[in-house]
């Protein structure tokens, strides 16, 4: 597909276009880390987009609300902690209702998807909160060496998540919970705490993604993150993680996220008509899943 795109548009494989794609997908990719862990446990989180929007709005609100006499670094820190805190709290609430009150995560997060969006609209009054300052914009537009900051954040978090899921005992429990939760419980592992922790972490990742988007636009949009839950789930599934839990890899989720953004980017480069784009997007996702399934069957892995 990459080669086909390169053949069709000479601009596709330029360094600046690839870095653009990296920045564009960084937010969904960060959310998809949490989504992968949640789905590995055979749970789901539909609230990610609303939580991201809420975290972004709170961050922007705090940035506007703090007196300018405060040192720049301090107010930026407070705003970031507030945004991440909101995301973490939302994740904790998702986890609490799912794990301790035994309500299916699909229902819990469907509810928080709606509540979160309502809170965003209430907090912003339906209007964007804009002009957030140059230092805040650096989160999405700054560079570390040659790489844009959001790409560095994304790659760093993926490396950590990959190591965590692959190399730690806790990571292996997450796979085991998705395969056979009862057996893990019988082995004396505190499954509830792990589940609660993963939902909370998922919320924190959503919060971070919301902050990254707000920085990218220099504006917290009341409709930000709408539909992100479906894109994140698509990225996870395209990466080969099973929706039934227990099988998958966070590194492949990153590949899945890139495939989705490359499709969108490629269709913009080729100037394909809007109505056709949706048909193409869906068809390519189906095709990619079929190819992946065939490869796995024949590769024996």
């Amino acid at each position: 597909m990459l080669l086909a795109l390169w053949r069709l548009s000479p601009y596709f494989l330029t360094a600046s276009n690839l870095l653009n794609i990296g920045s564009q997908i960084s937010m969904i990719a960060v959310i998809s880390i949490g989504a992968t862990a949640v789905i590995l446990m055979a749970e789901i989180d539909l609230s990610v987009g609303s939580v991201a929007a809420l975290a972004g709005a709170i961050t922007a609100g705090v940035l506007h609300g703090i007196p300018t006499s405060w040192p720049a670094g301090l107010w930026l820190g407070v705003a970031l902690v507030a945004g991440l805190g909101v995301g973490t709290l939302a994740g904790l609430i998702n986890g609490f209702f799912t794990v301790y009150l035994s309500i299916p995560s699909f229902i819990v997060t469907l509810a928080t998807l709606s509540i979160g969006r309502g809170l965003v609209l209430l907090y912003t009054g339906g209007r964007p909160i804009s002009n957030l300052g140059e230092s805040f914009a650096q989160i999405s537009w700054g560079h570390i060496g040659l790489l844009p900051v959001p790409v560095v954040i994304m790659l760093g978090l993926y490396l950590l998540a990959w190591l965590f899921l692959r190399e730690t005992q806790l990571g292996r429990y997450i796979y085991a919970i998705g395969t056979n939760k009862r057996a893990v419980e019988l082995a004396g592992v505190n499954v509830r705490t792990i589940e609660l922790g993963i939902f909370t972490l998922g919320g924190a990742f959503s919060g971070l993604a919301g902050i990254m988007l707000t920085s990218r636009l220099d504006s917290a949009q009341p409709t930000a993150g709408t539909g992100w839950e479906l894109v994140a789930i698509a990225a996870v599934v395209l990466g080969g993680t099973s929706l039934y839990g227990g099988r998958g890899s966070v590194a492949k989720t990153l590949v899945g996220a890139f495939i989705l953004q490359i499709i969108a980017n490629g269709m913009n480069l080729l100037n394909i008509q809007a109505y056709w784009q949706q048909i193409a997007q869906g068809s390519i996702i189906l095709l990619a899943l079929l190819v992946e399934r065939q490869l796995r069957r024949h590769g024996g892995g």
Binding site: P128, L213, N265, Q273, A274, Q277
Partner: peptide, 26 residues
């Protein structure tokens, strides 16, 4: 009209789509 793309009335999408269009039409 050298490029005609949809961005769903959305600021984030408008930004990403414009980045891509700028790549294709330097």
């Amino acid at each position: 009209i050298i490029a005609d793309q949809e961005a769903s009335f959305d600021q984030a999408k408008g930004l990403a789509v414009m980045q891509n269009i700028l790549q294709a039409n330097p």
